[in-house]
Nucleic acid binder design. Sequence first.
DNA 1: TCCTTATATGAATAATTGTTCATATATTTT
DNA 2: AAAATATATGAACAATTATTCATATAAGGA
Lengths: 115, 115
Amino acid sequence: MEVNDITIIDGEKVERLKATLPNDDFIINIAELFKVFGDSTRMKILSVLLEDELCVCDIANIINATQSAVSHQLRILKQAKLVKYRKVGKVVYYSLDDEHVKEIYRKGRDHIEEL
Amino acid sequence: MEVNDITIIDGEKVERLKATLPNDDFIINIAELFKVFGDSTRMKILSVLLEDELCVCDIANIINATQSAVSHQLRILKQAKLVKYRKVGKVVYYSLDDEHVKEIYRKGRDHIEEL
DNA sequence: TCCTTATATGAATAATTGTTCATATATTTT
DNA sequence: AAAATATATGAACAATTATTCATATAAGGA
């Protein structure tokens, strides 16, 4: 015991549960992933990309944000492998990278709509 | 057009996509929900609660955090309706509130494990 | 009744982060 | 070649937030 020296359940069970805890890397990575979903601007971007592949300036227009803010947030979405892009001349088209985005979005929606 | 007056796609399509955007309340709520998942301490708490119903001090022991930190985070999880609790004397047992937690957790795991 | 235990909570602090503004880069148009 | 356009990015600032510490509350045991 390091932080607290009290337990309600027996020490054996505590040890067993400690063993089931995912390692720190996993915890940090999954928290980082959800953090990316945890911002209104990024959720708006993901929402429109659920509908269509779009360039930066159109995304900015549709969600009523500045080009700079959208570009910054797209970088974060890109790093999390939630969106991918395709360059056509000076225009960069962004789209969802995989099905997980849709699935996570839907599960989140289900939870808040259940009430 | 309010923020930018440039578009790549035609204005009609921009308007159509603006119409598909969820309203602000929804966006704020879903972002708030994922924000709750977006913290290591809370993810650790959810991880152990996926295994078992547990009291505050045992959670603190298992994830190696202070009682105070765990209690603060449990309040946030409670507000998001991700965990529920049951009082037995002075001991408070927390458990997952619904299936959505498991499902969201699994989808997040799938994404980071896909690489 | 007094002491201990389990949990909750307010305030302060430190760290993280989203936006803005200015500007850089790259591509197209004139 | 110069101007305009689409996007990216660094720095600064403001806002949010997680933890710690002290303490409050409430229940149980001596």
